[in-house]
């Protein structure tokens, strides 16, 4: 236990301390003449920057939307794929495939092959029905990013929830049916309570990854148009490696860590009650 916890501790503490340290410094990689203690200037600059508040909102919108879509649809699909039908095994493997596709590739496929206004499949379908094709990333940038990220994570939710549904006691359902409970009642009073643990596992793991979505935005919109799809992760990236403003980026990093801790606090608390440790 000692070595690996020590490693984790170092891994967390050293960069954390450095981030906090830099966030109080004037530090620009391009301009070595600027330096010294900055006090709270970097933070003041950050909170007065409208981009920052937009990025904070975008981060939460992305997190909440994808969670609702994947958990909601995932539950329904888990019930569907629990039914017996011909070729179910193959259909299931096809449905979970997007989870294995790397985010950069997912973003590229959707951007160029699906949603491209001229050559994309969506455009072709719109043409077929006589509509004007939509330039998705220009007109609905956030919705487009949410669509891509949901496509990646829906199979994950499905995979976990399906396993949970399959462990449901069939006799229990049979009994409910005998008592003439309808399909909807069975779903709400038997299936859903049974799934609560699995759902909290899905929410926990997805939150970990959704707070830090980067590749999908980097590849498709680069945070744009304007700042419409800039989340906190992308904002800090832009500060640090595009504007070389280490001080400002570090201040953003400290805020990101605080945000993660707030979310983690509530989440870990509610999860801890459900998991037996």
């Amino acid at each position: 236990m000692v070595p690996s916890v020590a490693v984790l501790l170092l891994w967390m503490i050293v960069p954390l301390v450095m981030t906090v340290w830099f966030s109080f410094q004037r530090y620009n990689l391009l301009d070595p003449s600027v330096g010294g203690f900055a006090g709270f200037d970097n933070y003041a600059y950050l909170v007065t920057d409208p981009d920052f508040w937009v990025s904070l909102r975008n981060t939460m919108v992305l997190l909440a939307s994808v969670l609702v879509i994947t958990v909601g649809l995932g539950t329904l699909l888990a019930v569907l794929f629990d039914q017996d039908f011909p070729g179910r095994g193959i259909a299931r493997v096809l449905a979970i495939s997007p989870f294995f596709v790397m985010p950069t590739v997912a973003a590229l496929i959707w951007k160029n092959l699906m949603m491209h206004p001229i050559y994309g499949v969506f455009g072709a379908i719109a043409h077929g029905f006589g509509f004007e094709p939509i330039d998705w990333f220009a007109e609905y940038p956030m919705a487009s990013v949410i669509l891509i990220v949901s496509w990646e994570w829906l199979p994950f939710a499905l995979l976990i929830l399906l396993t949970a549904v399959q462990s449901l006691d069939h006799e229990q359902r049979e009994a409910a049916r005998m008592d003439s409970a309808g399909v909807v009642a069975q779903f709400f009073f038997i299936t859903l309570p049974h799934l609560s643990r699995a759902i909290s596992v899905v929410i926990m793991i997805e939150t970990i990854f959704l707070l830090t979505v980067f590749a999908e935005i980097f590849v498709t919109t680069s945070g744009g148009p304007g700042n419409a799809t800039t989340n906190l992760a992308f904002l800090i990236y832009a500060r640090a490696l595009l504007q070389f403003d280490v001080g400002g980026a570090s201040a953003g990093g400290v805020v990101a860590i605080l945000l993660a801790n707030v979310v983690a606090f509530f989440l870990v608390r509610s999860i801890a009650r459900r998991l037996e440790v």
Binding site: M18, I208, L211, L232, A233, G253, A256, A260, V263
Partner: peptide, 12 residues
Amino acid sequence: TKMLPPVGVLVP
């Protein structure tokens, strides 16, 4: 610790 975004420690 897994929920801390990697960007938070990217610079260091």
